[in-house]
Computed example of a mutant assay.
Amino acid sequence: MKDTIVIDWSTIPKPVDDGAANHLTGLDLPQIVLNTTSGEAVDLSQLAGRTVIYAYPWKKRPDGPLPEGWVTIPGAAGCTPQSCAFRDSASEIRAAGATHLFGLSTQDSAYQREAVDRLQLPFPLLSDQHLRLTNALSLPTFVAAGMTLLRRLTMIVNNGRIERVFYPVFPPDRNAADVLAWLADHRDD
């Protein structure tokens, strides 16, 4: 498909599991409404069925620079390959039982819309620009270029409760395949 990027992951620092997401499995999502790139407001805690939410740090625009030192931050690089992998697997993920699929970042919806259009994502991105969901769940973050950004993780939520967390996610372009495999193995759960 379009805009698939190939990265030599052996040259990128691999994130380590620092335990920052250990508390998430089994938590109920808080009632927080987030804006989407499709113009809707979504309360993830109210969605029925399985929802896949992949969190990514920051998606740069093609003509924009990366924050200084970006590729040296473990787990920072790879937002576009991760999104493209979810784009390419979206119909299979839905067929494996996910009712909803979202990307999540702390960027605002207007900024995210460019990526949805450019990458032709068949699902909306959620904006947590005010860090309400991030803070309520104590999602793992880091700071780069003065921005508080999410560490890359993926949550599978079932009827408002976090059922499975993938963290750390590396390499990012394999995340969608890992999620699809888990969904296929737990279709009847």
Rank of each mutant, 00 (worst) to 15 (best):
P15G: 10
G75V: 03
A144L: 04
Y56R: 04
Q31D: 13
N35R: 10
T37Y: 02
D8P: 07
S91P: 00
F142T: 13
V33C: 00
S38G: 15
V42S: 02
Q107A: 07
D3S: 08
L139V: 12
E68L: 08
I12D: 11
R94Q: 09
T25H: 01
G64I: 00
S91R: 06
Q107Y: 07
L137P: 08
D43V: 01
E114Y: 06
T154F: 04
T141C: 14
R118Q: 03
P30Q: 04
V143K: 05
T141G: 11
R94I: 13
Q82T: 03
D18M: 09
L44T: 06
P168M: 04
M1R: 09
A176S: 11
L27F: 02
A184V: 00
S10G: 07
M147S: 14
I5N: 03
V165A: 07
V143E: 14
P62W: 03
D108H: 10
A48R: 14
P124Y: 00
D128F: 03
A145E: 15
M155E: 09
T134N: 14
L139Y: 03
R87Y: 03
G64K: 11
D63R: 07
R151V: 04
P57M: 09
G78M: 05
A177Y: 09
H23G: 03
Q31M: 02
A181Y: 02
R161H: 02
D178V: 04
K60I: 09
I32K: 09
L44K: 01
T11G: 08
A20P: 02
L180D: 11
C84K: 14
P30N: 05
I12C: 12
G19N: 12
A76Y: 08
N35W: 00
Q129Y: 10
E163T: 10
S91Q: 12
S38M: 03
T106M: 06
S109M: 08
H23C: 04
M155D: 13
L44I: 09
T106V: 14
D189Q: 10
W9N: 12
D63T: 06
E114Q: 08
L139R: 07
F123H: 06
D178L: 11
V116Y: 08
A48V: 04
D178A: 12
M1A: 15
F166H: 12
A77N: 02
V116M: 08
D178F: 07
N22D: 13
P65R: 05
V71E: 14
Q46W: 04
T154H: 03
R174I: 08
V42A: 04
L180I: 04
A48S: 15
P65Q: 10
R174W: 09
A20L: 15
E92T: 05
D18V: 08
S89W: 01
